[in-house]
C-alpha cells in the first residue's frame, strides 16, 4: 500500500492542531455544564486557561525543530493554527482576570501592573503576542517579507515571560512551572546556532 499522499498527511496534521486547540475548550464546556468547576470556579478557569496558553505556546515552538529533525514540512504549516489557539487561551485567561478579579476596573489593572511584577510580566507576554496574531495571515507575511520572520521571533520572549509569570506566582511547589521552563529552554536552546558558537563564528540567520 502506498504511503498517504502529502495532502492527506497535511490534513491529518491540521486536524491534530485544531484538536489540540479545541479539545480543552470542549472539555471545559463539559465541566461547566456539569458544574464541576470546584470550590473556586474563577480560580479554576483562570488556571485552566493559563495552563493551556503555555502548553499551546510550547507546541507552537516545537514545530520548527520538528520539521528540521523529521524533514516533514507539515509541522510548520500548522504552526499558525497552534499559535492562534495559544493566543485565544491567553486572551481568555486575561479576560477572566479582568472581569472577576478586577471587575473591569482600569485603575485596578494599572495598580496591579505597577505593584505586581508577575502581572506586569504576564501582561507584557500578551501584549507581545497581539501584533503576531494580527500579522499571522499570508497577506501580512507577503507584505512584511523578511521582517515578518524577525517580528515573529517575539514569540520567544512572550513564551519566556509567560513561564516566568507562572513561576513567580506559585507559592512553594514549583515543579510544574519548572517543567514548562525546562521544555521551553530545550526548544529555545535548540535554535541557537551551536555550530557557529562552538567554532567561534558569527551566528547565521534563522527563521523562527
Amino acid at each position: 500500500m502506498p504511503a498517504p499522499g502529502p495532502t492527506v498527511r497535511l490534513w491529518g496534521w491540521r486536524l491534530a492542531a485544531w484538536a489540540l486547540g479545541l479539545a480543552p475548550l470542549l472539555w471545559l464546556a463539559v465541566r461547566v455544564l456539569q458544574s464541576r468547576l470546584g470550590a473556586n470556579p474563577v480560580e479554576f478557569l483562570e488556571h485552566y486557561a493559563g495552563d493551556w496558553s503555555l502548553r499551546l505556546l510550547l507546541a507552537t515552538l516545537a514545530m520548527t525543530p520538528l520539521r528540521r529533525i523529521s524533514g516533514w514540512s507539515e509541522p510548520v504549516r500548522v504552526r499558525r493554527a497552534l499559535g492562534l489557539w495559544a493566543f485565544f487561551w491567553i486572551c481568555l485567561h486575561f479576560a477572566i482576570y479582568l472581569t472577576f478579579d478586577l471587575e473591569g476596573s482600569p485603575a485596578a489593572l494599572a495598580d496591579d501592573l505597577v505593584k505586581r511584577s508577575y502581572i506586569a510580566i504576564g501582561f507584557a507576554a500578551w501584549l507581545l503576542l497581539v501584533p503576531l496574531a494580527i500579522t499571522s495571515t499570508q497577506a501580512w507575511q507577503r507584505r512584511l517579507k523578511r521582517r515578518w520572520a524577525q517580528l515573529h521571533r517575539l514569540i520567544y520572549a512572550a513564551a519566556l515571560l509567560g513561564v516566568v509569570h507562572y513561576l513567580w506566582l506559585v507559592k512553594a511547589d514549583r515543579r510544574e512551572p519548572l517543567l514548562y521552563l525546562a521544555l521551553l529552554l530545550v526548544l529555545l536552546g535548540w535554535r541557537l546556532p551551536w555550530r557557529g558558537i562552538l567554532r567561534g563564528h558569527s551566528p547565521p540567520r534563522r527563521t523562527p
Binding site: 473556586n40 474563577v42 480560580e43 495598580d111 511584577s117 508577575y118 506566582l169
Partner: peptide
C-alpha cells in the same frame, strides 16, 4: 509582596 491583600474571594 506578590499580590494584594485588600480584597478576597
Amino acid at each position: 509582596p506578590r499580590w494584594s491583600q485588600a480584597k478576597e474571594r
